[in-house]
Each structure stands twice: as C-alpha cells, then as structure tokens.
C-alpha cells in the first residue's frame, strides 16, 4: 500500500543465506515485501523459494541441519535474533501449506485451536465469533455453518484449503505465507482461493510460492524470481511477465529453460 506515495515495506530481508548441512540453499537474498500486497515467489523446483518462505516464520527451525544467516526484519525487529520468540512470531505470521492439512478434528476446533493456545478468547461467545468471522473471511462460512462440529477432514480439497486459510487468519496474523496453496486443487477451487487472496490482501500482507506462473501473474502485485538459490529478479508482476530485465527470468517464464 502506498502511503504518501511511498511504498510501505513490511518485511525486509538482508543478506539471507540458508544452509542445509554443508549445502548452501539460499545465497544472499535481499528482498523487500510490500505491506498489504501479494508477493509471488516463482522459480523452478529446488530453487529455494519455499526455503525462503519458511525462513519468514522460522519453520526451518524444525529441520535440525538447517542454518539461517542474515537479517529478516519485520516491524523493525530481526526475527533471527535470539530474543525473538518463535511462538509469538508465528502468531503474527500465519502459514498455509501445499497440501490442505486440517487437524483431524471438527471444523470448529480447527479454527478455535489457534485462538485457544494464544488465549485470544475469554468466553465461548467470543470464540464463536472468532470462528464465524474467520470462516466468513475465508469464504467458507456459508458452506459449513450447519456442520461446524463435523470433522474438517470430511470437506472437499478446496474447502479444506479454505479451512486452513481460515485457521491461519483466526489469530489475525499480519503476514500470511502460502506455500503452493493451490497445487492440489482443481481450477474452480483454485479460482476461489485466488479470489480469497485478493480479498485478504486488504488486511494482510501475503507471500505466495507458486509453480504456476499464470497464478503468480493473476494474484500478485510483486513477483520475485528465484533460481539456484539466488533471487534473480524482483519487481512488479506486470513488469516481470511483460518485460523482465534478466535473461534467466525471461527464459523461465517463457518456458525456455534447458
């Protein structure tokens, strides 16, 4: 979002290197993410785009051999700093995964889990409200309002993914990370999610990793192209897709990769 004509930067990554054991997966990534915009990260498999995404909410901590260097600054705060609390960070930065992964619990419990562990609701009524709002924002309310206490795993793939999005937004995160959220969905469900992403960007900053360049082109305002662990090019989406500056970007998005 532009304020007084100046782009507001939400996330600012400086010289980020990531290592898996001895292998370096990301090289010196400097990428600024604009607030309340959708930023798409594209690139061939294994290029490091998912790795970068997972740096942003420190999901890489789960992997023992993974080391992250450099600074990732969100709200003037370096999340790689020792004083950063991962649990708090992940409350602020939600994530939606490639495969819909609702908890094998009821729809209601799926949504209420986050607010419960973060103590966001004082009463049953408040919780009901959070659940309803989250589902409404995820455009799922109408479809599930009569079966909130049925298992979330009984929904269709697209509904499950929207449930996961509702779960992610239930704790009101500032940033939502999406790791190929539509790769397991059919075109209709994909379109619904894309529409949803467009809506969500009003309140959240969204970063989406996708294999589908068409999807990146459709949903994002900014695009970053990763290749072999490097950020090759980063800029506005229409620039990248109409007239990229870098030859490798052009080769990738036109399908000329050898």
């Amino acid at each position: 979002m532009k304020k007084n004509g100046v782009k507001m930067i939400k996330i600012n990554s400086k010289n980020v290197d990531v290592f898996y054991g001895k292998k370096q997966a990301l090289f010196n990534i400097n990428l600024d993410i604009e607030e309340n915009q959708v930023t798409a990260l594209i690139g061939p498999s294994g290029c490091g785009k998912s790795t970068f995404l997972r740096c942003l909410n420190r999901m890489n901590d789960v992997i023992d051999i993974c080391r992250v260097k450099g600074q990732i600054i969100i709200n003037d705060f370096d999340i790689n700093d020792k004083s950063c609390d991962v649990v708090r960070l992940r409350e602020k930065i939600g994530m939606v995964f490639q495969k819909p992964n609702p908890f094998p619990k009821t729809i209601y419990e799926n949504i209420s889990y986050g607010p419960t562990i973060h103590g966001m609701a004082q009463s049953k009524n408040e919780m009901d409200e959070i659940v309803e709002n989250s589902l409404k924002k995820a455009a799922l309310w109408e479809e599930v309002k009569d079966r909130l206490h049925e298992p979330g795993t009984g929904l269709s793939g697209g509904q499950q993914q929207r449930l996961c999005i509702a779960r992610a937004i239930s704790v009101k995160p500032e940033v939502i990370l999406m790791d190929e959220p539509c790769s397991a969905l059919d075109p209709i469900a994909t379109a619904q999610i894309e529409e949803l992403i467009d809506e969500l960007k009003k309140d959240h900053t969204i970063i989406i990793v996708t294999h589908s360049m068409a999807q990146a082109a459709r949903v994002s305002q900014n695009t970053g192209f990763f290749h072999l662990g490097e950020l090759i090019e980063h800029g506005s989406t229409d620039k990248i897709f109409k007239n990229p500056e870098n030859k490798r970007t052009q080769d990738y998005i036109t399908g000329r990769f050898g």
């Binding site: 909410n57 999901m59 708090r88 992940r90 908890f103 973060h118 992610a168």
Partner: peptide, 20 residues
Amino acid sequence: SIREAALAMGASKMQTTMHH
C-alpha cells in the same frame, strides 16, 4: 503436515506433540 500445521499456528513443540 499435521505437526507443521500446529507449529505454524504458533503451538509450541510440547503443545504440538500433546494436542495433535
């Protein structure tokens, strides 16, 4: 994916394990 989901929601390791 279930563990990841819980962790990404901000559950601690212990909560992830015991709740899910």
